[in-house]
């Protein structure tokens, strides 16, 4: 059949378009949450803890709220990393079986999705740790 006589890549893409390799792909929403959940939670926490700290120091009060916000950001980051990890199990990526390596593959696999899920595990995981490190000034007891 001449329609399939394009290059290998063309065949691949045809397969992707017709949905052949989409059976076990995770929803894009979960992948994007996995990638951006951690950093976004950090960003929101950053601006709000800054304002809370300023407000507390100007008006008085305890800094516990800031600590709670950082903890919440770390939890969201962890949830995003877990979501990315579960997405990766669905696409059969690098982390599920074998050592850490870049998810690269043949062109007929959902490589973009696999990449995104691996990226989400690392990035959201990192931001979980970053959010915890951000709360250090509260524990070192710098105060106002």
């Amino acid at each position: 059949m001449s329609a399939e006589r394009g290059s290998g890549a063309a065949r691949t893409v045809t397969a992707a378009v017709t949905g052949e390799s989409r059976a076990n792909e995770p929803a894009a929403g979960r992948l994007w949450f996995g990638l951006l959940g951690g950093p976004s939670a950090w960003a929101v926490a950053f601006v709000s803890t800054y304002l809370v700290a300023e407000s507390t120091c100007v008006r008085g009060g305890a800094l516990t709220t800031a600590g709670v916000i950082w903890l919440a950001a770390a939890l969201v980051g962890a949830a995003a990393a877990v979501a990315a990890w579960r997405a990766q199990r669905t696409v059969g990526g690098a982390f599920a079986n074998g050592p850490l390596r870049e998810p690269q593959a043949r062109s007929d696999e959902p490589v973009g999705r696999r990449f995104l899920s691996a990226a989400g595990i690392v990035l959201s995981g990192t931001f979980t740790v970053v959010s915890l490190v951000q709360s250090l000034p509260l524990f070192v007891g710098v105060g106002c």
């Binding site: 800054y50 700290a53 300023e54 990035l123 000034p137 710098v142 106002c144």
Partner: peptide, 29 residues
Amino acid sequence: ILTGFVSFGLWAHHMFTTGLPLVAAGFFT
């Protein structure tokens, strides 16, 4: 990507001598 995000959490780093509350400055450090 990380640089892109965290770069938005550094702004007061230029304002350390304006008398920011210590703990707020600590977040930026």
